[in-house]
Design a protein around this nucleic acid. Structure first.
Lengths: 284, 284
DNA sequence: ATTTTTATGAAATATTTATTTCATTTTATG
DNA sequence: CATAAAATGAAATAAATATTTCATAAAAAT
């Protein structure tokens, strides 16, 4: 039986290998992150064997040639990457679309994984810092994106008391006049980007306020107007976008903010707790 | 100044790109896990541009040739990969803000998987049927749950023109008086359940309207008042709940509805498309 | 509408990379 | 320590891949 995983195949055949072959196998295993991208001659040079020996090694493992071996090494690396995710992943077997809920939830899990993989944690951290520093925070979100905007506005205003969303209006909101360089503007826009969102952000960028855009793609029209860009994938097989991933990013922003400022936030929440109790806001 | 990160370089040069170049950039960004391993000719074939254009794209971004661009794409992928590996090792011990995004996204992926596993597809289908049958749809959502309510209201009203959300108000909304047995009421409530949500649902149940509750737990106080119950897990390690999973359920509801009623919906969307064009709602 | 500029892809060419050949060295075996 | 068998690397050849050329098409400017 022929092993499908390259590394297992190597380990399995380890005893039958010549000295040079063992050296090659060793190198491939030790440099599993870089070796899959080397050409045959460079690999030969690094391992200090002849080029031909590298080629023979590929044949020895029953591959059709060096490019074939290389392809398998690269694929194994990618598999490792996804399995390195903290989360036990959904077995792709149960991903056949038995019905719409499962299909959409499945797609959204993919979206979140992709978002997790491509998120730039340094940028995220900077955004949290800007939120802490900001005198006022303005949120720009129109049409469907309002949902995410509402969520952010609710919690940011709860915690910081300095946040408001600029609502869809016929004319341009008067609030835009008030924005100064000490403020932070968060723009939310996803595929079928609403023109007004782009225009407002463009206008805002003229004042010296810092801007954050949360969008679905690095080539989105909002990107040019964001000092910081957070990308959350929203693609599902539907005429709408799904905002699961942006929602998660929003939750992460609020969570990070409260952790960074936990002393202030705890004080504030204690006060609120009293208020909520007085007005019997929650069910228990 | 020349950007070192390939993707940043692409974003920076985005405006100066020709149509074909944008197509290539798009493809590279969307397939960032596979594209770095393609040869120039295969990439050209996938993007449906000439081979030469791909080469030109590499020069355009100031690389020495296609292999150089390819090397940078691969390196960028590896950087992300190793940072994913680092994440795999860091457990909940260190709560530095840098890892909060990954932590929350990871938790939310878990939430979505759990939601996927426990969702009752039969109930989901029934809910979609009730939405189709309903004369009017009312959405009850207060405080943070408003975000999900907004999303549902936006699209349901877009498609069916018979949906509204009952907003948080000091007194009880007058809309409640209008609810009849032909209507559908969707209640949204998650942990720290707002008392008013429960009360309003309780009241609604006295009329003979059908009710759906979307909540985070089968023991939630909303459950007794729902003819249909959809459970979406929202737990993250934070003082807030994350609504990624409920958002995905909402997207699924709208998607299922549009698929079931695609003739009507397509007609409606066609009309809207004209309106949107007239008022130049979308960018591009 | 017409000209000029720019971008494009097919094909030709150049370069790089993989494979084979073959003389030589190493290793295993009696 | 011979001798056969196996393995090796340098060089030659083959194959694949990248780059350039050039005629044509698309966009932009006039």
């Amino acid at each position: 039986m022929l092993e499908s995983d390259v590394y297992k195949r190597m380990i399995h055949a380890r005893e039958k290998m010549s000295k040079s072959h063992k050296k090659i196998a060793n190198y491939l295993i030790e440099h599993h992150e870089t070796a899959p991208f080397l050409t045959a001659s460079k690999l030969a040079k690094n391992v200090k064997v002849g080029e031909a020996t590298v080629i023979r090694f590929a044949f020895f493992l029953n591959y059709r040639g060096y490019p074939d071996l290389q392809r398998h090494l690269q694929e194994a690396l990618q598999r490792k990457m996804t399995s390195a995710e903290v989360l036990a992943r959904t077995t792709d077997e149960d991903n056949f679309t038995e019905n719409v809920v499962r299909e959409v939830l499945g797609d959204d899990i993919q979206n979140m994984k992709q978002t997790l993989n491509q998120v730039d944690t340094a940028v995220f951290e900077q955004v949290v810092n800007e939120m802490i520093k900001a005198k006022r925070i303005y949120i720009i979100a129109y049409r469907s994106a309002t949902s995410i905007g509402t969520f952010l506005e609710f919690y940011l205003d709860l915690i910081l008391q300095n946040t408001e969303m600029i609502h869809q209006a016929d004319g341009v909101s008067e609030h835009l006049l008030d924005i100064t360089k000490d403020d932070l503007v968060i723009g939310l826009g996803f595929s079928r980007y609403t023109r007004r969102t782009v225009e407002v952000l463009k206008y805002v960028k003229q004042s010296d306020a810092k801007t954050v855009v949360i969008t679905d793609h690095l080539l989105s029209p909002l990107v040019p107007y964001g000092d910081y860009k957070l990308v959350a994938t929203t693609e599902i097989n539907s005429f709408i976008d799904s905002f699961a991933a942006p929602m998660s990013i929003a939750s992460a922003l609020i969570t990070a903010l409260t952790r960074a400022e936990h002393v202030k936030v705890e004080k504030r929440l204690k006060e609120l707790e009293g208020l909520w109790e007085t007005f019997d806001v929650f069910y228990d």
